[in-house]
């Protein structure tokens, strides 16, 4: 507490901090809730890499999988970037 607030005996006004922190954390947790559970994505990504590598040469990083919620649908997106042919 600062000297001034000691002299004037004012207590810290922390309600605004509480509100800001809550708005941030709750907004984030609501977004997390909306996401479909996608625990299996990393394992699936690795298996996809293994399968595709049998036929074409790809880097593990070039296969990206993600899951999104659009309205009532869950969209599973697999993005495979093939290396440039030399």
């Amino acid at each position: 507490m600062s000297l001034l607030s000691l002299i004037f005996g004012s207590k810290p006004k922390t309600a605004n901090m509480a509100k800001e922190r809550l708005q941030l954390i709750i907004a984030r947790e609501r977004v997390d809730d909306g996401k479909p559970s996608a625990d299996f994505l990393p394992a699936m990504q690795q298996e996809l890499v293994a399968v595709i590598s049998k036929y074409v040469h790809v880097n593990a990083d070039d296969i990206k999988v993600s899951m999104e919620k659009k309205g009532n649908y869950e969209v599973l997106e697999v993005n495979i970037v093939l290396p440039e042919q030399n």
């Binding site: 207590k11 006004k13 922390t14 309600a15 509480a18 509100k19 809550l22 708005q23 709750i26």
Partner: peptide, 16 residues
């Protein structure tokens, strides 16, 4: 405590 800025107001809670 709300008036003193120490506690969230009911409007804050409702807004959140």
């Amino acid at each position: 405590r709300v008036e003193d800025g120490e506690m969230l107001s009911f409007k804050d809670v409702q807004e959140i």
